[in-house]
Computed example of a mutant assay.
Amino acid sequence: MFLPLMFPDRTGSVFGSEFPELYDRMYLCVCRTRRDSDGAAQYGIYDAPVTPFNSPVATLDYGAGGALGTVMFVGPGGSPRTHEMSSFLTVVGGPRHRKFTASDEKEYIWGWRTNTQDSLEEWTCVNSNGDTVAWYALGVPGEVYETSSGCAFGVEEQYPHLAVEFLASLLIMRYLATLNT
């Protein structure tokens, strides 16, 4: 049995936060790196212990007025892979269910679900077998946390090499949800 990577989300914001893994196995950070007067913006995802803080491992570029733009991942050796967000995450079964192909050439699907019994809402990412590989749980309404938003991002331990891709695709999913698209 494996211990998943657990990242408390410090702010809960789509536009910037820190994700320190509970057992110090990773430390991901999302920061705005540019904002233009027309509303276009760029956000970098940093893997703090692995790369210098000025070298993002992924970049999210949004267009003017908040339009979708591109997502770029920097692979081993610095080789970038750039995708149009609209074609990187394609709709399957409704706007809050989208699939993408990760660097391992496998397909993953993010979906939104509400657990009414426990009053929880979360995003889940599954592989082609339907196994959960990553998730994002929203904090419990009304609960206050000292060093966290109460939200948490998780990645199954077999997938640490895809944690950045899961986080980037999750941020785009959450961004689309704020736009109700």
Rank of each mutant, 00 (worst) to 15 (best):
T132I: 06
T70G: 07
T90A: 09
T59A: 00
M26K: 08
S79F: 04
F53I: 13
H97C: 02
S128W: 05
R96E: 07
C31E: 14
P56C: 04
L89Y: 11
P20Q: 03
D131A: 09
V91N: 06
L28V: 04
C31M: 08
L28E: 00
W110P: 03
S17L: 07
Q117T: 01
D9H: 10
E122R: 02
S17K: 10
S119H: 15
P56D: 08
A41C: 07
C125N: 09
P76F: 12
M6N: 11
S128N: 11
T114Q: 15
E84G: 10
A134T: 00
N129F: 15
N127G: 10
T101C: 04
M72F: 01
F53S: 13
D47G: 06
R113T: 15
V50L: 05
Q42Y: 10
V30Y: 01
D118K: 11
Y62A: 00
M6H: 14
G16K: 03
L68N: 12
Y23D: 10
G65F: 06
H97L: 00
N129Q: 11
M6I: 15
G111Y: 02
E84C: 11
Y108M: 11
C31I: 09
I109A: 14
Q117I: 12
E107C: 12
I45F: 02
S87M: 06
D118E: 04
E122T: 06
M85G: 08
D118S: 11
F15K: 11
F15W: 12
G66Y: 12
V126Q: 07
F88M: 09
D9M: 00
Q117L: 15
P49M: 04
G44R: 02
R32Y: 12
F53C: 13
S128D: 13
R10T: 15
D36R: 00
G12K: 07
F53V: 10
